[in-house]
Amino acid sequence: MKPMPDFLAQVHDPRDPSPWLALYLDQSTPLPDPVKAAWLADSSSGSRQYLLPFLRPLARMAIVLFQVCKVFVPRNWSHSRLLHRLLAWGLKRFVSPEANWLILRHFHLGSQVLAFIATNSPVPVETSPLEPEDLDALKDDMFLKHDLNLFNFVIRLNQALRAKGLELKKAEAVDFSMIREPGVRLEDMPKGRLNFLDLQSAIELFTPLYQLMLTDNDFWRAANSLQLDETIGIYAATLLDAPEHLILVNNKHPLVPLSTLRAGHRLVIHGLSTEMLHCLLVKFRAAREAGAAGGHL
């Protein structure tokens, strides 16, 4: 069993309160307690505190250098399969159990959110769910497929709506059947002596590699898929008629592309936004099952 995070094991000292305990106990951010504990344990790690400040500027410098280098290679130069094998290898050997768990969860949660929107939209929409059971499953171009899924879903949904002259609106009877807890478990993640790297440091390290081994088009699309967080949040809020829940689903305006230099940080926000949106859907489902949803559903 995973040891209790330090901020939960320590006795509260009013003269030296733990900011991590405050964030964990605060209920304004919708996250399940196990997810919040894992997120904050990863965020409060020594790797996040001492290593990330050095890695981040080096990673961003590497992005600039790789961009210059790619001017001299063929436009369609890409090694996606090798990239994903390297990512899976690095995650298994160097990344913390909490970070790996959150990464695997992200694919499941993202697939469920898209399935929720597709099922409750007034038009049929095809989805391509990604539900990796372990880190080895990521070798199957999983990160690239995830980015493609987001854009393909938005295109398919809106093509179908436009073809029928319809718009998304509050669903008459909301279907939550696809919203569930993923089967991946924290205790199954690798726990070797070198599994110390926190989520943000790992993402900052892997982002230049992602840029180097994919085409410019694939990397640009991956970076700008993060700006669809608001779009997906608006779709879900429209179906639920609950726009007030959009405040924490925020990753910049979808119509204003940003520099890829901040892609690592924004990817972390993307993962957290997905967790929060999924948690909100779980709460709406629970309210429905308890018969307490009233006019909101």
Rank of each mutant, 00 (worst) to 15 (best):
residue 2 K to I: 15
residue 2 K to L: 13
residue 5 P to V: 11
residue 7 F to S: 03
residue 8 L to S: 08
residue 10 Q to G: 00
residue 11 V to M: 00
residue 15 R to L: 05
residue 15 R to W: 09
residue 17 P to I: 05
residue 21 L to R: 12
residue 23 L to D: 10
residue 23 L to S: 13
residue 26 D to I: 11
residue 26 D to H: 15
residue 27 Q to N: 10
residue 29 T to P: 04
residue 32 P to H: 09
residue 32 P to S: 15
residue 33 D to A: 15
residue 34 P to I: 13
residue 38 A to Y: 14
residue 40 L to I: 13
residue 42 D to Y: 14
residue 44 S to Y: 01
residue 44 S to K: 04
residue 49 Q to V: 11
residue 50 Y to F: 09
residue 54 F to Y: 14
residue 56 R to K: 15
residue 58 L to H: 08
residue 63 I to D: 01
residue 67 Q to H: 11
residue 69 C to N: 05
residue 71 V to C: 12
residue 73 V to T: 13
residue 75 R to A: 15
residue 75 R to K: 13
residue 76 N to S: 12
residue 78 S to M: 07
residue 80 S to Y: 06
residue 83 L to H: 04
residue 85 R to L: 09
residue 89 W to R: 12
residue 93 R to L: 15
residue 96 S to Y: 11
residue 96 S to V: 06
residue 97 P to D: 12
residue 97 P to W: 09
residue 98 E to V: 08
residue 99 A to F: 10
residue 99 A to E: 00
residue 100 N to W: 05
residue 100 N to M: 04
residue 102 L to Q: 15
residue 103 I to L: 12
residue 105 R to G: 01
residue 106 H to G: 05
residue 107 F to G: 06
residue 107 F to Q: 08
residue 109 L to K: 13
residue 111 S to Q: 10
residue 111 S to F: 09
residue 112 Q to H: 07
residue 125 V to A: 02
residue 127 T to H: 05
residue 135 L to H: 04
residue 137 A to I: 15
residue 138 L to T: 07
residue 140 D to S: 14
residue 142 M to L: 15
residue 151 F to W: 06
residue 154 V to H: 01
residue 156 R to W: 06
residue 156 R to M: 06
residue 157 L to K: 04
residue 160 A to E: 10
residue 164 K to L: 06
residue 164 K to H: 13
residue 166 L to A: 06
residue 167 E to F: 11
residue 167 E to Q: 14
residue 169 K to C: 07
residue 172 E to C: 02
residue 172 E to I: 02
residue 174 V to A: 01
residue 176 F to Y: 15
residue 177 S to P: 12
residue 177 S to K: 11
residue 177 S to D: 07
residue 180 R to G: 01
residue 183 G to P: 00
residue 185 R to K: 13
residue 190 P to C: 07
residue 192 G to P: 02
residue 193 R to A: 03
residue 194 L to E: 08
residue 196 F to R: 13
residue 198 D to F: 04
residue 202 A to P: 00
residue 209 L to A: 04
residue 209 L to Y: 01
residue 210 Y to L: 03
residue 211 Q to G: 03
residue 214 L to N: 08
residue 215 T to V: 07
residue 215 T to I: 09
residue 219 F to Q: 01
residue 221 R to L: 06
residue 225 S to E: 11
residue 227 Q to D: 00
residue 235 Y to R: 00
residue 238 T to W: 02
residue 243 P to E: 09
residue 243 P to G: 14
residue 246 L to W: 08
residue 247 I to N: 03
residue 250 N to M: 10
residue 251 N to T: 07
residue 251 N to K: 06
residue 256 V to N: 03
residue 260 T to C: 03
residue 260 T to I: 08
residue 261 L to M: 01
residue 263 A to L: 04
residue 266 R to A: 01
residue 268 V to G: 01
residue 272 L to S: 07
residue 273 S to P: 01
residue 276 M to A: 09
residue 277 L to R: 13
residue 279 C to S: 13
residue 281 L to A: 06
residue 284 F to S: 02
residue 286 A to G: 02
residue 288 R to T: 09
residue 293 A to P: 08
residue 297 L to S: 03
